[in-house]
C-alpha cells in the first residue's frame, strides 16, 4: 500500500454535518443514562448502549430515504431502548416504548456471530491499512479529490487502483478463511 491512512477525521457522516457529534453526545447521553440506570445498568452499560445507538443513528442518517420522525435525542433513546431489550433479552413489555419508538428497528446485521468477529480480528491483523482505506472510501463520505489528498495518493486513479487491490485482498482472505469461519458464510 502506498500511503498511510491515519489522521482521517472522525464522524464524517451526513449526521455530523447537521449537528456536531460532541453537541449531540452532550444532549443525548444523559437521557440514555437515565433509562439505563432505571433498568438497573451502570455508567459503562449506558456508554456501551449509547455508542451503539450513535453508530446506528449515523448509518440511518446516511441513508438518502431516511426521514427523522423524532428529535435526534429522542431517536437515540429509542434505539438505545431496543438495544437494551436485545442485549439483555428483556421482554418488550418490560421496557416502556412510545408508539414512535415501537417503529424503530435495529439493523439485522448489527450483532455478528463470534466467528465473524474472529474473522474481522484476523483481517485487522493481516491488513488493517486496507480496511482503513476501504472504510474511508465507502463510509467516510469525503469527495474523491479530498480523499486522495487526505490519504496521500498521487491522483484519483492510483487511489482507485489501490481500493480495488484492497477489496480483492479482503475477498481472497475471506475466501481462504471460509472453512475456519464457516458460519459467516450462511
Amino acid at each position: 500500500m502506498e500511503a498511510a491512512t491515519a489522521n482521517i477525521p472522525i464522524f464524517k457522516t451526513q449526521a455530523s454535518k447537521e449537528q456536531p457529534i460532541e453537541e449531540l453526545y452532550e444532549a443525548a447521553f444523559p437521557n440514555v443514562a437515565r433509562f439505563v440506570k432505571k433498568m438497573g445498568g451502570d455508567v459503562e452499560d449506558a456508554k456501551d448502549v449509547f455508542h451503539d445507538a450513535l453508530v446506528i443513528y449515523q448509518e440511518r442518517c446516511d441513508q438518502p430515504e431516511f426521514r427523522l420522525q423524532h428529535s435526534p435525542e429522542g431517536y437515540l433513546l429509542g434505539i438505545a431502548k431496543h438495544l437494551w431489550i436485545r442485549k439483555h433479552h428483556q421482554q418488550r413489555k418490560l421496557v416502556p416504548l412510545s408508539s414512535i419508538e415501537r417503529e424503530i428497528s435495529l439493523p439485522e446485521d448489527y450483532f455478528p456471530s463470534y466467528k465473524t468477529q474472529r474473522l474481522l480480528q484476523f483481517l485487522e491483523s493481516a491488513g488493517q491499512k486496507c480496511l482503513d482505506l476501504l472504510r474511508a472510501f465507502y463510509y467516510q463520505k469525503q469527495p474523491l479529490k479530498q480523499l486522495v489528498k487526505t490519504l496521500g495518493y498521487a491522483n484519483e486513479h492510483s487511489l482507485s487502483v489501490q481500493k480495488y487491490k484492497c477489496l480483492e485482498k479482503v475477498r481472497h482472505t475471506v475466501k481462504n478463511q471460509s472453512v475456519a469461519y464457516e458460519d459467516f458464510l450462511d
Binding site: H51, L54, V55, Y110, T116, L120, Y139
Partner: peptide
C-alpha cells in the same frame, strides 16, 4: 466485513 470494521472504529 468492511461495514463491521467501520462500526468498530466508530465505537
Amino acid at each position: 466485513l468492511v461495514k463491521l470494521y467501520h462500526r468498530k472504529k466508530l465505537k
